[in-house]
Amino acid sequence: MSNWPDLDRFLQTDPCDAGCGTAMELLHVYADLAAADPAAAQRRYPEVAAHLRACGPCEQDLGGLLAAIRPDVTKP
């Protein structure tokens, strides 16, 4: 274990990381799944999940999309 966990985590790269392009293309699919079951979305798209853990801007977009669809999700 590093003495500098934040720096270490920042420099770690995950070979499964899909990159921003794929994550942005799949954001709507991932968001619908994640709104119902976040773990299921991670299982279905592990490469997008890996990217969202490492990329602030894409994670922020997902947050915005989840906030936008939340009222729809609760609609009868």
């Binding site: 966990p5 934040d6 720096l7 270490d8 985590r9 920042f10 770690q12 790269t13 995950d14 070979p15 499964c16 890996a50 853990r53 490492a54 990329c55 602030g56 994670e59």
Partner: peptide, 19 residues
Amino acid sequence: MWRYVGDHPGSAGGRSRDA
């Protein structure tokens, strides 16, 4: 900004993870 705080899959498997 970059996410370098919090959970990161690299800490569990990192560069040696089977791609």
